[in-house]
Design a protein around this nucleic acid. Structure first.
Lengths: 147, 147
DNA sequence: TAGATTTCGAACATTTTAGTAAAGAAACTT
DNA sequence: AAGTTTCTTTACTAAAATGTTCGAAATCTA
């Protein structure tokens, strides 16, 4: 399961994505719009800022904005930043590899082999879905999916 | 990430799968073979027994054995039994659906849409991988992948 | 320069989950 | 009857997830 933290992060990025190219947006506005506890969101935005995804400005008229185009921010990147590995087993992770303590022969492990496939299937989608595509998809759903 | 519990469950099922058709196997043997804490394994096996996957017999000469053919036990089933939902968001889960509290318009949510695709991609593999195929794969890897 | 605004940073608090262990009851075999 | 093995309940510990508190530090406006 995704943590709430990551879900909040994605939602915040979508808000900022829709605001891309305009004035910075304040935490409180994002928090209210998406019903995210303000102080918690503050932490999350900070993490993304420190990772270079967001730009921030202090003081009156300050706030947050995207530091990259919404097309260039991918779900995989956000998930790894906040939640860590995407793979379901440490021994299969590309960015957070750790061996499984009990495992004797890693390269001859059937479980590992299968979960490598699972990871690849997940990444095929997550590497390909950007904040821009999420925004696009949502507006499509709004038009075509409504009563 | 898979919990250790689920990983232990899969490993235990593979041991029992290789023993399919023979005498019941005692917890302690499985635990030693796979380096799983005995008492913890006891709990896990019990859960699977109560779910009908395993057969058990008390007393001397007792132990555990598969209650179904290894071909008919799928990773998706085990994961759901032990860890719960496979989907990364509650609002996307087939067997453990819960709505996301903050979510206003669930059917017009771009995040949800994408994570439905992710779930489907995962299930395509997990619904198709049985204990039997894991055992098969492992023996293949043993023959072809060794120095 | 003063005051208001807004992010930054650390630390703390609370709740849930993961992982494990203990003790003894119940069932079965010989 | 004695020994073996699963079953059941209970409880503990450590870590992670989810927030909150408090007070800086930077920036803008008047």
């Amino acid at each position: 399961m995704l943590s709430k933290k990551t879900k909040y992060a994605i939602k915040a990025l979508m808000v900022l994505g829709r605001n891309y190219g305009k004035e910075p947006m304040q935490i409180i506005r994002i928090a209210e719009e998406e019903r995210i506890p303000k102080k918690f969101l503050e932490q999350i935005l900070l993490e993304m800022r420190n990772a270079g995804i967001l730009y921030s400005k202090k003081g009156a008229g300050g706030g947050y904005s995207l530091n990259k185009a919404p097309e260039d921010i991918y779900l995989s990147q956000i998930m790894r930043l906040i939640d860590g590995p995407i793979a379901l087993l440490p021994c299969v992770s590309l960015n957070f590899y750790r061996s499984c303590e009990e495992c004797v022969e890693e390269h001859a492990c059937g479980i590992r082999d299968t979960f490598t496939d699972v990871r690849n299937a997940m990444l095929q989608i997550l590497n390909d879905t950007s904040i821009a595509s999420l925004i696009q998809k949502e507006s499509d759903l709004g038009f075509f999916g409504n009563p």
